[in-house]
Amino acid sequence: MVKADNVGFRLKNGRKILDGVTLGLKSSEICVVIGPNGAGKSTLMKVMNGIIKPTDGRVNIGDECVSGMQRRDIAKKIAYLPQTTHPVPCSVYETVLLGRKPYMSWYPKRHDYEMTEAVMCELGISAMRDKCVTELSGGEFQKILIARAMVQKADILMLDEPINHLDVKNQLEIMDTAERVTKEHGLSTMIVLHDLNLALRYADSVLLMDGGRPLYCGEKDSLSEEKLSEAYGINISVKKIDDRSVVMY
């Protein structure tokens, strides 16, 4: 399990990007991080992933502090998908196989190929194995990246705005996939989202951030309209429709 303990990050000019964030990810659960632009959501993900070293507090994976770990070892524990801009021209199969990078020395071994085949089969993307990823739709492309993350065989999955620029159908498909793999493989998943409705629909727990500080961290059902309104600076109400929380603004 990964745990951030009172984590802070400030720039050299003293500006605080993160301040006093404490967060633990549980297995088989999705923690959705929400908040306005510049709230520090992506920075928190990079800090928890060891890409940025915190200036205060610490992040632990089990008993080990992330700051002292090799990148390769972190990648075996955390599969991290940053915001993606452009796909690279290579085949779907090679893209998914790249997820085995933390386990490779010179070349992929038989086990790496078998693992790749198995994950592609599980996500139903085997048919497009020889396609170039630049020819895929946005939804298909995100699915390939999730497959790549799954091939890493890490216990923790971190997705930074995975549904940006996708239409509603593809947004739901990607979130369904993330939810399914989290539950079926017992992963601890952290997702940064902008869509509050999808956040409340898929989250087990929610971290609401504003100005680098956590405004709320806990069960999604206890997240108050006031906290949301305070974070985004607009009036936000949450209604229950058919047993589902719907955010209105």
Binding site: R71, R72, T84, T85, V88, L98, K101, P108
Partner: peptide, 18 residues
């Protein structure tokens, strides 16, 4: 394979352990 990962950008490569 490190170069294959770097092709995707610095963040992706770091996430893949490079």
């Amino acid at each position: 394979w490190d170069y294959n990962a770097v092709q995707w950008g610095e963040m992706h490569a770091e996430g893949l352990g490079v």
